[in-house]
């Protein structure tokens, strides 16, 4: 299994960034093969329904996000999407099923969250290998890691929390220990020497509940799902270079801006994955998928469909295969780095 340290910086393109990059010709080159994909496609792909495997539950954030993107994408591709749900073992059930039991024919795709699922990959030792067995070929939706406290908490800023952590143990609620949000807290603790303790609550909802009802000092979690409690909490920071929804999160600043650090961006980028074998066997099909994905992203339809699903369009991003792979490898590296904390606390 390749666990080399990948490049630190990620080329992640927001919509604005993408337009800029394309104009400069930089990212344009990345998509060059994709642009000719449709012309090269010799078979009539897609001639049947696309199969999307979701490694989490039906009706959850990932499912809804997939449906938001696919509404427009399906129209461009001229086909429908069928969904299969394989939750369990932090996504491992879904990935094992996808790699072991789904045909690598480019009709079968997986839609998952890179951050948590690469940590699963690094810590649970599944039977498949990344990127030899599958790759993420396009990310379309981000869910950044945030830290927040309840509205009536004495901690006004991230610095307050760190200062407290330097004199006593500060408890954070999180959904699981092997999770990007926990790694965010480990990074902060390592940097500042604060005594930060992550308590896993087995899910985002119980974790948020624990912080709201005062069992813990703060919550480390995803931003998207925290917006429903936004009016009861104070966001202290976001683990991203830019806060995508400052208006909804009391203008919380990015962690690197507050701390002057160089922490990697942490979150759960939702991306489509495909068998590596399909890329080798059906390059035309994959090129067509990439091209139409971008087309859908740029059409504006995606944002409208996102709103329709009750989600926040500000989190829609477009991330190409190369950047997805880098982000995935970075997560593996982080998981390996904090392995002692993930296994022994």
């Amino acid at each position: 299994m390749d666990r080399k340290t990948p490049n630190k910086s990620t080329t992640r393109l927001t919509r604005r960034g993408l337009i800029k990059a394309t104009t400069l010709g930089g990212a344009g080159a990345l998509f060059a093969p994709a642009l000719v994909g449709r012309a090269l496609a010799q078979d009539d792909f897609p001639s049947r329904t696309m199969q999307i495997l979701i490694p989490t539950g039906e009706g959850g954030g990932v499912d809804r996000s997939a449906r938001a993107f696919n509404a427009g994408w399906g129209e461009i591709l001229g086909t429908g999407f069928e969904y299969g749900y394989f939750p369990g073992a932090a996504g491992q059930v879904g990935y094992e099923t996808f790699i072991g039991r789904r045909e690598p024919d480019a009709y079968n795709l997986l839609y998952g969250a890179i951050g948590p699922e690469m940590i699963m990959y690094a810590t649970q030792n599944p039977s498949y290998t990344f990127p030899d067995d599958y790759v993420y070929f396009g990310g379309v939706n981000a869910d950044d890691v945030v830290i927040w406290v309840a509205e009536d908490s004495p901690f006004q800023t991230l610095e307050d929390l760190i200062e407290e952590g330097q004199s006593r143990r500060v408890n954070f609620s999180g959904s699981r220990l092997p999770h990007p949000a926990s790694i965010a807290v480990f990074l902060l603790a390592e940097e500042t020497g604060a005594d930060f303790n992550v308590i896993p609550y087995g899910g985002g909802n119980p974790a948020r509940s624990a912080a709201l009802t005062g069992e813990v000092d703060a919550c480390c979690t995803h931003m998207g799902s925290s917006l429903s409690v936004a009016d009861q909490v104070r966001f202290l920071t976001v683990f991203q270079d830019e806060n995508r929804v400052p208006g909804l999160t009391n203008d919380a600043l990015p962690v690197n801006e507050i701390m002057g650090t160089d922490f990697p961006e942490l979150g759960g980028l939702r991306a489509f994955a495909i068998h590596t074998a399909a890329i080798e066997q059906y390059p035309d099909r994959v090129a067509l998928l990439k091209e139409t994905m971008l087309e859908n992203f740029e059409s504006g339809r995606y944002d409208a469909d996102t709103l329709d699903q009750g989600l926040t369009p500000e989190f829609n991003v477009f991330v190409d295969q190369e950047a997805c792979t880098r982000s995935a490898m970075e997560m593996v590296e982080l998981a390996n780095r904090f392995e002692h904390l993930l296994r022994d606390g």
Partner: peptide, 9 residues
Amino acid sequence: GADHIYSAP
């Protein structure tokens, strides 16, 4: 199943 702290099966 996975323990509640470390998710160790």
